[in-house]
Structure formats: structure tokens, C-alpha cells
Design a binder for these strands. Structure first.
Lengths: 341, 341
DNA sequence: CTGAAAGCGCTAACAT
DNA sequence: ATGTTAGCGCTTTCAG
């Protein structure tokens, strides 16, 4: 059994109040007593019991973080940043994978509340707006999902997915592409996926491209889904007719698509162009390097923690605060100017 | 302020003991009272306060997990598995990145102890044996690092790094390679790095290969380090003389090495072969697909949690328990038979 | 400047 | 079968 504040107090010959105040620096303690307390703590190897402290002050200094899948580098990058910044503010994080399971996501939220977290960061949540909207007592920040109006204590941090996707349409058109496939994410469940879909097809329409020229396939934001969807496309379409470009709005999915194309001896971008979304670290080192849209993980993570912590520390309500970040296009080698063909 | 067990008891017209027992199912509660308690809980939106519970029972059901870097897919895969299995046993995890900083790693351990975790999984720790060896009150499992003898409550889960690396020597020799570069990890700080180095160079020696034929470079287990080290090698050596193979004992590092080779218009494996270590998911999709050694993340994660939880739940001492996993070679396209040249 | 003591929300003897 | 209550380790008001 490890030493408690009582043991320290006794050994130092002072009251527990004094020890507590000495540790938290909340009131002056004379040098002499401080000295004795210090020695006593060292002698006993005393470690303050955060649980007892939390119970008393009703603050755990823990932020709950849910992500769909930590093994997806996009989320891993966000989590890494959250952890880093949270540490600077002396907060810890409790991490959960929802595995893209809505029920799991809800259980996790409850578990967080029970665990007494001071705030929650929900990355790319699958829950419906109504589910998210009911306030849960602690501030929550929703990351990487388009904001909605709410009176609840919820903030949003997100890149501009609509614009991000729309600019891809501009880019592809101006580079001479005239046949398109859009590998939609889970449009039914993930609002971001809709946003991107609308951005891309909407802009295409504005540019006067007929609907039939852009095939839309629904899948998941995963390597495997990208792989399979590309196979479907190639089964169905004769890629040699026209200048084809595939927009797979997740780098990991685009990577899968690229691999599928390779197995059919297709060259990217010679035979077919591929564009991703997220700009994860590795996209720059694929073969060919992936043209993509930056989804700024560092800022996403940083803003998210800052928002929750601000809400926690200053008792500010987040109610609908939004941070919308830029999502610029990153041009690399998986697309090129067709006029150079 | 959310409802407490007292509120529930009052509303249901029972004692707090009954509510507590009803929740934990530790003693029989009549159907009628159970019914009323259930209703009261729902009406109040009651969520048990885990912190208070932990304080009382001296168990948090939290496992602390430290990894060098969560954005490294190898560690992400391990963490994902740890989280998954821990969940099955109703344990939560508290995650920390040490960023390859020994001081941070030690702070984190202390922080875990203060936070009252029931056990710790330390993945690829940088601390010295002596630092790790002093028991800290809770069971700790050290993952992905060779075991050492200890009386402390420490268990080990690790792949056979020596053999894993040694078989690469066998493989390369039998495939006709005759010039080698070994991109060592941080040999000074990471025991695994030493293990692999010894495995590779040791076997080479056993096979009668002269020392001068294998260059050893020290670096880090990172993409950038692989990249830079390859540049150094190419600056120094004329790769066209002999059949060169590079062993970068971390896939991420091997990937970096591969990219550096490409920038010099070198073809892998035609001009130079590359072998990695870890077999992360993405290695199969590099160009060319990476020949590597399997470092079984799933098993590593799973065994680690199972070991800690066993120690926690059954009060068994781990003292030196070891789980050593196989590290088989995965042959892909970044190496080939030179006789076919 | 320091100490005594109440109480955070829960569990588990002990009592009935 | 259920209730009463002490106490987990800490913070903080109130008193001195």
C-alpha cells in the first residue's frame, strides 16, 4: 500500500491541510515546514492520489477521445497532436476506438462520463445529429465533421470539405480530364462524405459537366474499399475512352484504388489519374506520389484540444463554436496535364 | 450536477446499499425494488461515478499504455489491439506518446501511478534496465523489447528479434547477395536494435562473410532516418559493384530508404535490394512491395493485455514471465534472386 | 501562518 | 432481504 497524505503529514509533523497546500501551492507554507514535508514525501515515495483528488474537486484533468480507427494514419496523426497539446495543459487523454460502430461510440461516451472526463473530443463521429445534440454535462468538440446548429455545449473543428472537394473538380477540368469516377465514402452515415460528394459533383455541374460523365460509387474510407471499388469501375468502364480521373476522398482509399489499378497493369496517371483527400504523411511517398487535398491533422488536433480545454477551464459554453480550416490542394504525380499527353 | 447514488436511493425509497448492490449484482435485490431502482436511475439519468468507485475499491480498471509514437503504424496497430482486447475485459486504456524521450517516459509512468492505473504496458521502452527494474506497485508488461531477468512484477512480450534478423542474413546469402548495408536503429538506447544488429551480423559471420562486406550505419527507426541513411550509403559506395542488399530493420525506415534510392533513379530490387522489419499493413503496398520480417502486432498487443490483466485480476506476480513470438520472413518484391539477373 | 474536520460518491462490513 | 454507516485519500472552509 503506498503512502497517503496522512502518512506524509504525520512524518513531517504537520497537518494534512498543510501538506495539501504545500503540494498545490494554494497557500503559503513556511520554508521550514516545506522542507520537512519535502523530506517526508521523498522518504515515503509519496505520489498524490489523483483519484481522490478528482473526487473532491470534481475535475479529473482527463479528456476522452474517440476515433473510428487509430490504425488509420489520418486519425493517428490527429490523436498524436491532441495528446501533445493536452499534455502542455496538464491534461491526460483516455483513448477509444469505435471501429466505425455507432453503438460502440455511444457506449464510449457513457463510459467517459462515468469515468469523469472533463471534456470529450469526438473525431469523425457516426452518431446522428440528434444523438450528438443532447448535451451531456461536459463540453464536447466534434472534429472532422461539418458543424450543425446547436444550443448544446458542443464545438466544431473541421476543414472546409465542400471547398476542398470542389477545387478538385476545378483542378481536374482545367487539366483536361473529361471522365470522372467519385468513390464516395459512407454517404449515408458520415456527413463529411456527403459534403465532399456535393462539393465535387456540385462544382462539376456548375462547370457544365453532364451528370453521366461522373460515376459515383459508394464505399468506405478504407484501403480495401478503395481497392474493390476500383475493380468495379474497371470491370464496368472502358478506361481507354476519354481522360479518366478517379477522386477517392480519403488517401487510404485512394491508395487502395491505386493498387487495384496496378494489378491490371494500368499506369497512374498515364492511364488513369487518382486524387485523394487528407494528405497523410505517407501520401507523398506512394508511387506515384498522391495528388490530394490537405486535411490539416495538426491544426485539427490542436484546435480541438484548445477548444475543449478553454471550455473546461473558463466555464465557457461552446454552443456551436466552429473552427473551419482551409483544405488546399496538394498537387503531386498521380495526376497530370493531359495536354502533355 | 449529475445524480448520485443517494438521489437514486431516495427516489426509489431504498438505501444506497441496495442501489449499489443492485448495480454491481453483488447481492440479491427483490424484483420489486430492482424495478423501482431501475426507474429511478432512468428518471435521473444516473451514471455511476467511477472515480468514487475506484477510490473505494482501489481499482480503476484502467491500463496505462506508453508508446514511442502513435503515428508510427507499427505502434498504432499494437495500440488498436490492446484497446480492443482490454475492452473485452472491461478495462479502459490511458494512452501516452513518449516521443522517444526517456524523461517523458518516466514522467508518464509516474503520472500513471498517480492516476491509479491498475497496470501498465510499456511499448518499446527507452529506459534502462535498472530504471525499469524497480518495481512500482502495479504489474507492468514490457512489449517489443527483449526480456531481462528480474524479480520485479514485470512481464515481457516480444518477437524473436535475433532470429528474425538472422534469417534475413540466410535469405540474402542464399539469394546471391554479396554486399550488405545494415541501417541500425538506435543501438545505444533500444535493446531490440542491438538484438537485430547482432542477429544479422552474427549470422553473416557464421556464414563466413567478412566484416568489411557489411556496412553498418546507425540511425533512428523513422522514415526520415531511412531516407538520409540511404543517401549516405549511396554517397559513399558504388552500388554497381556487387549485388547490394540493404537491411533497414523497421518498415518505415526501409520505406524511407526506398524513396531515397528512387530519387537517384535506382530501381529496387534491380539495382539494390531492400528488406524491412515489422510487416506493417502498408508494406505490402509499397512499390515494390517490401520484403520484411513479421513483427506480429496483433499478438504482441493481445498477449500484453492478457498478461497485465491476468496479473491484476489474479494477483499473480509476473516476475519475469516472457512470451516470445515468432518473427517469420515475408518475401515480397523488394528483393529477388540474383541468379535471375 | 497552520490545524481540525467535513464531505466528494461510492462500497462493504455489520446489523437487523 | 435490506438498511446503517464508516471510510477510501484528498481539498478546503472555518477557526484559531
Amino acid at each position: 500500500m503506498s503512502a497517503t497524505i496522512k502518512d506524509v503529514a504525520k512524518l513531517a509533523g504537520v497537518s494534512t491541510a498543510t501538506v495539501s497546500h504545500f503540494i498545490t501551492k494554494k497557500r503559503y507554507v513556511s520554508d521550514e515546514l516545506g522542507q520537512r514535508i519535502d523530506e517526508a514525501m521523498k522518504a515515503l515515495g509519496y505520489k498524490p492520489n489523483t483519484i481522490a483528488r478528482s473526487l473532491k474537486i470534481k475535475r479529473s484533468y482527463i479528456i476522452g477521445v474517440v476515433v473510428p480507427s487509430i490504425s488509420n494514419p489520418f486519425f493517428a496523426e490527429i490523436v498524436e497532436q491532441i495528446q501533445k497539446i493536452a499534455g502542455k495543459y496538464a491534461y491526460r487523454i483516455m483513448l477509444y476506438n469505435s471501429n466505425n460502430d455507432v453503438a460502440a461510440e455511444k457506449r464510449i461516451m457513457d463510459s467517459f462520463l462515468s469515468a469523469g472526463v472533463d471534456g470529450i473530443i469526438d473525431v469523425a463521429p457516426l452518431q446522428t445529429q440528434a444523438q450528438l445534440d443532447k448535451s451531456c454535462g461536459v463540453p464536447v468538440v466534434i472534429t472532422d465533421r461539418p458543424p450543425f446548429e446547436t444550443k448544446a455545449n458542443i464545438g466544431f473543428v473541421c476543414a472546409d470539405n465542400y471547398k476542398g472537394a470542389a477545387q478538385v473538380a476545378d483542378f481536374l477540368i482545367s487539366h483536361g480530364y473529361d471522365r470522372f469516377a467519385y468513390f464516395a465514402g459512407p454517404v449515408d452515415r458520415v456527413p463529411n462524405a456527403r459534403e465532399r460528394l456535393n462539393g465535387f459533383t456540385g462544382r462539376l455541374a456548375e462547370l457544365g459537366i453532364e451528370k453521366e460523365l461522373c460515376q459515383v460509387y459508394c464505399g468506405e474510407y478504407s484501403f480495401d474499399s478503395g481497392y474493390e471499388t476500383m475493380q468495379k469501375l474497371l470491370d464496368k468502364e472502358d478506361i481507354t475512352q476519354g481522360n479518366w480521373a478517379v477522386f477517392a476522398p480519403s488517401d487510404i482509399m485512394a491508395w487502395g484504388a491505386m493498387e487495384a489499378a496496378k494489378t491490371q497493369s494500368l499506369k497512374v496517371p498515364r492511364d488513369i489519374a487518382i486524387v485523394g483527400f487528407d494528405n497523410i504523411f505517407y501520401s507523398n511517398y506512394l508511387y506515384p506520389a498522391l495528388t490530394t487535398v490537405e486535411n490539416p491533422t495538426k491544426e485539427l488536433g490542436q484546435k480541438s484540444v484548445e477548444l475543449v480545454i478553454q471550455a473546461i477551464d473558463k466555464h465557457e459554453l461552446l454552443s456551436g463554436r466552429k473552427v473551419i480550416l482551409d483544405a488546399p490542394l496538394i498537387e503531386r504525380n498521380s495526376t497530370f496535364l493531359h495536354s502533355q499527353k
